[in-house]
Design a protein around this nucleic acid. Structure first.
Lengths: 158, 158
DNA sequence: AGGAATATGAGAACGATTCTCATCAGGTCA
DNA sequence: TGACCTGATGAGAATCGTTCTCATATTCCT
């Protein structure tokens, strides 16, 4: 499998994942969330995921990892983690919600219509324009959703 | 200075509902779409709607108008009209898809988190930035989704 | 360890949407 | 205009993602 990780060595990467997992669990414990085996496993899976898995995918990964977690618990835990603010939920077009750890800078998404790949990007200019527009209409932006559904440049699909 | 230009639904209201209905039906006929009673009624309901009704709401409105249309047909027709480009489908957070006639300039949405109200806006600057960002990453934007979930400025919730 | 509060698993229930299929209605052609 | 062929409709079953129910199993506090 190709490795798009920004880390130089797998040892370093493992360490980082460990840190992220610990960090997420710490935040949750601070909120009084009981850290059960299945929650710990899901937190770990999410902290090491480099894509945007959905509930079913996480269910499968947990099973593969030898730690059985029921689909019901996967859903319950995802909602819990979202409430706790340690993961983000995305409802892209088609299919169900997809998730990602929340411990990285805010960003929006480009979804490849042909492959389903998700690319992240961020534009301070767009963020600023959004706030400005909302303000002109008398609103404060609580959160937003910006998704660009794209095709690779040049792939003529008409 | 801002290129924001929100539309007032009253601007479109000036235009006769019948004209919009005829226009939409004409476009569809041109595409070889059979104009059945049910489809005609749904096109009419959509052309006169000033909000963003969902399938169930349209089903109810058709019933109230004395023209019974099954829910299955409502869904089939909505997909048909969307393919024909005469309506747009929006999947806002929570609940199902909501629709609106497509015969007005492209725009994005602000959703009031407290009231559910939807305000339309458009920013050429943002559109341009989106295309630019996608291009830099090797993509062409096919369509996008920009929604600002807001609260009235100053309404200190919590 | 002892226990109260809480989490889990399995499957039923749910809401939105799509599909199946027997019947019905547009639009065309003679 | 009337018969026809194709495509459309209605009613309900089926699907899909997600949530809920409830009996049982765990966690975490003391």
């Amino acid at each position: 499998m190709s490795d798009t990780s920004p880390f130089k060595s797998s040892a370093q990467a493992a360490r980082a994942v460990e840190d992220r997992t610990q960090e997420m669990q710490a935040v949750l414990r601070k909120q009084g969330v009981r850290m059960t085996k299945q929650r710990a496993k899901l937190v770990e899976l999410l902290s090491q995921a480099e894509d945007h898995p959905d509930a079913n995918e996480l269910h499968a990964r947990a099973r593969e990892a030898g730690a059985g977690v029921s689909l019901a618990t996967v859903y319950r835990t995802l909602s819990l983690l979202e409430e706790g603010g340690v993961i983000h939920r995305h409802a892209f077009e088609g299919g169900g919600s997809r998730f990602e750890a929340a411990d990285m800078p805010h960003h929006d998404h480009i979804i490849d219509l042909d492959t389903g790949d998700v690319v992240e990007f961020h534009s301070e200019k767009i963020e600023h324009l959004q706030a400005q527009i909302a303000a002109e209409l008398g609103y404060d932006v609580v959160h937003h959703r910006l998704e660009l559904y794209c095709r690779k440049a040049g792939s003529d699909k008409s």
